[in-house]
């Protein structure tokens, strides 16, 4: 079976993996401990995940 015949996710893992981690920072250390390059994006859902506040903010132009 050639690389082209493998499912896409297997092709991805056959090469050097580089990760963009969004949100919870806890995953970053584990990946780095495995020698994987990780770029962490410090992101939280709007208003800390409070849907009512997030909806209000959206109406106020955020």
């Amino acid at each position: 079976m050639t690389d082209q015949d493998r499912p896409q996710y297997q092709q991805l893992l056959a090469r050097k993996v580089e990760v963009v981690n969004v949100g919870l920072e806890g995953f970053v250390k584990d990946l780095r401990d495995c020698g994987i390059d990780v770029v962490h994006v410090d992101w939280k859902p709007s208003a800390g995940g409070d849907p009512q506040m997030a909806a209000l903010l959206a109406k106020l132009g955020v």
Partner: peptide, 8 residues
């Protein structure tokens, strides 16, 4: 205040 509450 919108940016404060939105971002935390």
């Amino acid at each position: 205040i919108r940016l404060v509450v939105d971002s935390g």
